[in-house]
Every structure is written in structure tokens, then in C-alpha cells.
């Protein structure tokens, strides 16, 4: 069985210009923030945003550059101490928050291979692309586990 056979095709996407305010609005009923795909005008997947990216966006010491500097005393961002204004939420766009290095599955990938890849990267859910890197769906670990349990007789 292939990834495309079990993936969910309906995925909420945003573009690189989507503001933080808009993102907070789009996902207000989600309870758990998903891995949000950022796509370009040709629907190609150019980045992903996770909850961590949103929490850390207003903390300058969490920038990508600082992450690679050695000997930094890592500290969690205190969510309740963050100073966020309305203006900041309107000015901050997806491109500022997104990660451009991320793991995806190819829609043709075998389920076992997909499961191993997700375990290797410790991912609960993952985006699926076709060979042109166009976003085609989403798969969760449970989708794979469920498929295996249901199909085994």
C-alpha cells in the first residue's frame, strides 16, 4: 500500500504573506496546532510552521542563527511573559516563522517506508507531496497504525 492510498487530501494551507493574526484566526477551533504547510502560488510546499515556531517568534534569542551557536544556555520561552502587541501580530507573516528544512513523504512511498521515516524523525504527522513538490495531503502515524490493524485479518 502507498502513502497516497491512506492520506487525507483536505489540508488547510497558508501562503508566505499570511499574518500571524490570520493564522491564529484560521486555527482557532483546532485545539491542537497542526504542522501548517506554507505554499507558493504554484501550490509548491515551501515551508512548514509548528506551534514551536509561533511561540518562539517574538523571542530574539531563539533565531535560527543563534540556534547553531555553541555553548548557549538553552531556556524555554516563558509564554506568559511574552510582550506581544496587536501591531506585531499584523506585521509578523508566515515567512518570518516558517522552517524551510523539513521532512515530507512522497505520495508514492510505501507505507512501511513512510512509517520508518516518521519514527526516525519522531513525527506524529507529516505532509505528503508529489514528485513536483506540490502538496497533495497529510498523513498521521495513527493513520498508518490503523491501516495496518484494519487490513490484517
Amino acid at each position: 500500500m502507498k502513502t497516497k492510498d491512506i492520506m487525507t487530501q483536505s489540508v488547510t494551507t497558508i501562503t508566505r504573506e499570511t499574518t500571524l493574526n490570520k493564522i491564529l484566526d484560521i486555527f482557532k477551533n483546532f485545539h491542537t496546532f497542526p504542522i501548517v504547510p506554507v505554499i507558493d502560488e504554484n501550490k509548491k510546499l515551501i515551508g512548514v510552521i509548528s506551534l514551536k515556531n509561533i511561540v518562539e517568534i517574538f523571542e530574539p534569542t531563539k533565531s535560527t542563527l543563534i540556534k547553531s551557536a555553541p555553548f548557549i544556555d538553552q531556556k524555554e520561552v516563558d509564554l506568559f511573559e511574552l510582550e506581544i502587541t496587536d501591531e506585531m501580530k499584523h506585521l509578523c507573516i508566515a515567512e518570518d516563522m516558517m522552517e524551510s528544512k523539513f521532512v515530507t513523504l512522497n505520495e508514492e512511498m510505501d507505507l512501511k517506508e513512510a512509517y520508518n521515516l516518521m519514527r526516525l524523525h519522531n513525527l506524529e504527522e507529516i505532509l505528503v507531496v508529489n514528485k513536483e513538490n506540490i502538496l497533495v495531503g497529510r498523513v498521521g502515524v495513527f493513520d498508518i497504525v490503523r491501516t495496518v490493524f484494519v487490513t490484517k485479518k
Binding site: 530574539p60 534569542t61 533565531s63 542563527l65 543563534i66 551557536a69 555553541p70 544556555d73 510582550e83
Partner: peptide, 24 residues
């Protein structure tokens, strides 16, 4: 040494263009 700089920025909650350039 970036560690000392990060510590000061965190401690005094420094924000702004200068902070971003300095950290970079």
C-alpha cells in the same frame, strides 16, 4: 562569545533592531 550576549538580552528583555543585529 554568544552565550554571554544571549544571557544579557534575555535578562533585560532587550528588543529591537540593535538586539537583532547584535545577536546575528
Amino acid at each position: 562569545a554568544p552565550a554571554a550576549t544571549v544571557m544579557v538580552v534575555r535578562e533585560y528583555k532587550a528588543r529591537g533592531n540593535f538586539t537583532n543585529v547584535l545577536l546575528g
